[in-house]
Simulated scan of single mutants.
Amino acid sequence: MRIFLNYRTIDSVYAVGQISKQMARHFGRVHVFRDQDSLSLGALYARRIRAALDESDVVVSVIGTHWLDARDKRGVRCIDNERDWVRMELRIAFERGIPVVPVLLDDTMLPVPDSLPDDIRGLTLSQGWRIRHQTLEDDIDGLIRRLTPGATKPGSSAGAQPAATQRNSATGHGIVVANQNGTQNVTLNDPRGR
């Protein structure tokens, strides 16, 4: 499993470092791409980012409270700029058919379709995961379990396909968030009652 971490530094630095660290421990450092950890000195940023996306099996897009409304020096939302790296990485992933998993931090809501540019609106239809500051390590472990190829969910037999009604439920820590047909569905199935 090769994972590309997509994030906006302004709102997710506390989580992305820990996500990267735990994923590297599980999947191996060379299989987790985070620009700060993975780019060598002198690397051509744009070329290396595109190459890393080409090699990725999944893009994990970490979304915090300022992800959508972060603004540039002119006061324009960064996400509205076609050259915004967060947007470009997501656009490339969707164009290439790479699955994108939105990871929502704390009480951040999944953006509604009308709040995003057309080329990345697929994000609002992607099944995601929630990570809370108070349970950070456990929630990241739950995400890793869900991303691990061949991993089975508690209570299911190996190779069994979950029923359609189970598609949006989390059986481990964390919360699975799905947004289908423009309506946000949040399924809370957390044994700790968060």
Rank of each mutant, 00 (worst) to 15 (best):
C78E: 14
R132C: 13
V112C: 00
M109V: 11
D139A: 08
S20P: 03
A43P: 00
R34K: 11
I63V: 00
P99A: 04
T108L: 04
L125H: 12
S38N: 09
K73H: 14
I63T: 05
G142W: 03
R50G: 12
R121Q: 13
A15R: 00
V62I: 14
D119V: 01
Y14G: 07
S12D: 08
D37S: 09
I10A: 15
R50Y: 08
G17E: 11
I79E: 11
D11K: 07
D54E: 12
E137C: 00
A24V: 12
Q22D: 03
R87A: 01
D84V: 02
R8K: 10
A93N: 00
P117R: 05
V58A: 09
R96M: 13
Y7F: 15
T135L: 11
I79V: 14
I79A: 10
G97V: 05
I10S: 15
W129G: 01
N6W: 01
P111T: 02
H66K: 15
R34Q: 14
V86E: 01
M23L: 15
D84I: 01
V101E: 03
L125N: 13
R130C: 12
G128Q: 07
R71G: 01
R34M: 14
I144W: 04
S20D: 13
G128Y: 02
Y7E: 02
G42H: 09
T65A: 11
R145I: 08
S115P: 04
D84M: 06
W67D: 07
L143W: 02
Q18H: 09
Y7M: 00
D138Q: 15
D80W: 06
W85N: 11
T65C: 01
I92L: 03
D57A: 13
S40G: 14
I131H: 13
I140Y: 06
V62C: 04
N81S: 10
L116E: 00
R48Y: 10
L136W: 11
G28E: 04
A24I: 05
L39S: 02
S115G: 01
S56V: 02
L123H: 07
D69V: 12
L41H: 06
S56L: 03
S61C: 13
V62R: 09
A52C: 10
K21S: 15
V16T: 15
A46G: 10
W67H: 12
R48S: 09
F94D: 05
V58W: 00
A43D: 15
V101N: 01
I92Q: 08
E82R: 05
G122I: 06
P102L: 00
D35T: 08
R34W: 14
I19W: 05
D80C: 05
G142E: 05
M109Q: 12
V16W: 12
D72F: 07
L41N: 12
I49L: 10
H66G: 14
I144N: 14
C78A: 06
S38K: 09
S20C: 13
P113I: 09
E55M: 12
D54N: 10
D107Y: 08
D106W: 12
T65K: 11
P102H: 04
M23A: 15
G128L: 00
L110N: 11
Q127H: 08
R121C: 03
E89I: 08
G97P: 06
